[in-house]
Computed example of a mutant assay.
Amino acid sequence: MTAQAASYPDIGPLPQLKIDKAKAELGKRLFFDKRLSGDAGIACADCHVPEKAYSSKKALSPGYPGNGHFRNASSLVNTAHKNVWNWDGRIGTNLNDMTREMITEDYIMNMDMRIMQERVKQDPLYVKMFKDAGYGEPSNGSVRKAIPEYLKTLTSTGAPFDTGKMSASAKRGMKLFKGKAG
């Protein structure tokens, strides 16, 4: 085993995350809601497309209308298990911060959090969902908590690696990956 390989912890299936169902359902609705963008024209799901493993269907994600976006939206599958986000790892504190960044950045969703909060408060279903989730009145802080709760539901669990049913060839590859390949 190389020194580099020895410095990484052993890898295995992802640990089970505790998920609050009411908060995750609220987060899901917010994730697909275009009203969270400045012009109510795009939702999180427009760049992180469910049918594309919650990644972008294009090489460069569309971002906020008219900006000619410059990044590819990476997959959100297993994102709740990460410590840093974005291709360059520039945001590495928590998913709450990442959610705020994506909603407020002018080249992504271009939303003022105060306006977003007022839009959400005007929807009676949101008012009920926030209350049922234990957040009380809709707020931008609870939006930034609910979306990450939904992201926790996007965890890979069916791959052979996750189920412990890897082929003999895959097991040899894993041994190489953990060993001399580093």
Rank of each mutant, 00 (worst) to 15 (best):
M116R: 07
L36Q: 01
N86Q: 12
D20A: 06
Q122L: 09
K23I: 06
K57A: 14
K121A: 03
K28G: 02
D106T: 12
K152H: 07
R35H: 11
A5W: 01
G164K: 06
L30A: 12
D88H: 08
A181K: 05
R119Y: 10
K18G: 06
A53E: 11
N67R: 13
R29G: 00
P50Y: 00
W87E: 11
L125V: 14
K131G: 00
P65F: 10
A159F: 07
L60F: 12
K58W: 12
Y150V: 06
S142T: 10
Y54W: 15
H48Q: 06
E118L: 12
G89N: 05
G41M: 13
L151N: 06
K178Q: 13
N67A: 08
A6R: 14
N67H: 11
I19V: 02
K28Q: 10
A159H: 05
A24R: 05
S75D: 08
I42H: 04
G12P: 08
A159R: 09
S169E: 15
T79Y: 04
E118K: 15
V49I: 10
P138H: 02
F70H: 12
S156A: 07
M109T: 09
P124M: 08
G158L: 11
T104D: 10
F70K: 14
G92E: 05
G182M: 00
K18L: 09
T99V: 08
G158R: 12
K152G: 04
K52D: 06
F161P: 01
A40W: 07
E25S: 12
T157R: 10
P148S: 01
M98I: 11
G134N: 07
P65M: 08
K34V: 11
A5D: 00
S142A: 10
I115H: 04
L151P: 03
G141F: 05
M166R: 04
Y64I: 07
P65K: 13
C44W: 00
A168M: 08
R90F: 09
K57Y: 03
P50T: 00
K175Q: 15
R119I: 07
L26D: 03
L60V: 11
D97V: 14
G164N: 04
P124F: 06
R119L: 08
P15M: 03
R29M: 03
G38R: 05
P160A: 00
Y150Q: 07
A133F: 01
R144C: 14
K82R: 15
A3H: 08
A3Y: 10
H48I: 02
T157F: 02
F32W: 04
T93K: 14
A5I: 00
R114I: 09
P15E: 09
P62V: 10
G158P: 02
A59K: 14
P124S: 06
K171Q: 14
